[in-house]
Amino acid sequence: MKATILYEGKHQWTVFGRDPDKPEKIIDTNQYLVSTPSRALLIDPGGIEIFSSMLAATLHHVSVDQITDLFASHQDPDIISSLGLWDQVLPNARLHSPWLWESFIRHFGLNNIEYVPLPDDGGTIDLGDLSLQLVPAHYLHSSGNFNIYDPQAKILFSGDVGAALEADGAPMFVDDFDEHIPKMKMFHQRWMPSNRAKNDWVSRVRRLDVDILAPQHGRLYRGADVKRFLDWFEALEVGVGV
């Protein structure tokens, strides 16, 4: 699995994806690791099929003992169906996820890890010296859904917002925004159900200082492409798949 370091300061952001061993018919996903010298958070650690690749890739950056926290932006299988396996590897970890999905996510197998139910208005994930902000992104697309913002690294993990359906092995960053639009248009029109939720999210995200917008599928946006994406998304009518 390909690993790309997004930020390196007192803490580090790494994105994992483009797994060449992934079974053909499952959607490619981006997993994120935020690590401090003593702790680490896995963001949307992925489905059961990529668990081995993901854990192997993670061990190149942090030790198992260091992974203290998991985050699942919402309940989808590509986000967190690997939970039953993580539960055996990280029995003392905590899973931060929307309160709305607790009784559903537990179906993936949760016997040891502690479920931390996130209230609708968000809050923070505390990793000791590092505090990450939970940005509500409800109905984008899931009815209980969060993004993560790191004000130091200026990275916004945006979940399914900004996602695109790409060919295997696509580059990690958008290099030509206009060329990228066809790859993400249908995804947003079909999966995002609410214009009101979308516009509210765009106005809140515009107030954040974002260098990298990091979705869970497809390429990441950096620099001027972040604003380009927000403008495009604001103008797009969503929930029109039917």
């Binding site: 081995s52 690749s53 190149h60 030790s63 039953g84 055996q88």
Partner: peptide, 26 residues
Amino acid sequence: NDAKRRMHDVIRRVEHPSLLKSFQGV
């Protein structure tokens, strides 16, 4: 058993045995 198989898969994939030190307990 599935977890065990996948853990062994992880061991196979990690290039440097030293990286598996923390993993052995699991």
